[in-house]
C-alpha cells in the first residue's frame, strides 16, 4: 500500500520560525450573548439565591440536573421543580496540570462530576473541587471517587446568577 501514500510535505518548527514558508496570520474574534433559556435560566436564578434545583419527569420519575423543560427520554414536558441539596458525591475527577493551550498551571485544577443529593442517582454536574491540596500527589491522597462533598458558595452580594456562584465543592467535614 506504500504506493497509495502521497509524499506529503511535513514542516518543521524551524521552517516557520525562519520564515522558509509563507503564512498569513489573523485572529478570528467573535462575541456572543447566549440566552440561558427557560430551564437553566431558573437554575441560575436559584443559584443566585444559594439553592440548587432540578426538574422531575413524572413518567420516568427522574429528577434531572442540569434541569430541562423536556425529558429527552420520554420526550414530553417535565413536570415540576425539585429543591436539591448542595451536597453530593464525586462520580469522577481529574487533576489537571495544564491550561487549554498546554501552559503548565502553578496549582492543579480538580474538575469533577458531582452527583447532587436529591437528584436521581448518577445525575451529576460538572464543577471543581477545592481545599484538597496543591500538588498532584496531595490531591490524589485526599480525593477519591465516592468522596462526599459540599458546595462552597460566593457571598450573596457577589453572586450573579452563574454556575460560578458556587466557587467549588469541598470534602464534607473539611
Amino acid at each position: 500500500m506504500e504506493r497509495w501514500v502521497y509524499p506529503t510535505t511535513g514542516l518543521k518548527q524551524e521552517d516557520l520560525e525562519e520564515a522558509r514558508v509563507c503564512m498569513t496570520r489573523a485572529p478570528l474574534r467573535g462575541e456572543y450573548a447566549w440566552d440561558a433559556g427557560v430551564a437553566v435560566g431558573r437554575f441560575l436564578a436559584e443559584l443566585k439565591a444559594g439553592r440548587l434545583v432540578g426538574r422531575r419527569c413524572r413518567v420516568c420519575r427522574r429528577v434531572m440536573v442540569p434541569p430541562r423543560m423536556f425529558c429527552e427520554q420520554c420526550f414530553r414536558p417535565t413536570d415540576e421543580w425539585v429543591p436539591l441539596q448542595d451536597t453530593g458525591t464525586v462520580l469522577t475527577f481529574s487533576v489537571c496540570t495544564v491550561a487549554w493551550d498546554m501552559r503548565r498551571l502553578e496549582v492543579p485544577e480538580v474538575p469533577a462530576v458531582i452527583a447532587i443529593d436529591g437528584a436521581s442517582p448518577g445525575m451529576g454536574i460538572l464543577h471543581k473541587l477545592g481545599e484538597v491540596g496543591r500538588t498532584v500527589d496531595e490531591i490524589l491522597d485526599r480525593v477519591h471517587i465516592g468522596l462526599r462533598v459540599q458546595a462552597v458558595w460566593k457571598p450573596p452580594r457577589r453572586r450573579e446568577g452563574a454556575i460560578t456562584d458556587i466557587l467549588y465543592f469541598r470534602p464534607v467535614g473539611a
Binding site: W34, S94, V95, E109, A112
Partner: peptide, 25 residues
Amino acid sequence: DHTTERPLGPNLLWIFALEMNAYMT
C-alpha cells in the same frame, strides 16, 4: 455548554481524564 460549563474554564483533556478515571476505578 455555554452557560453551565464554559464559565468553569474547561478544556478537552478534562472529559477524557474524567472518563478514564471513571473507567479505571
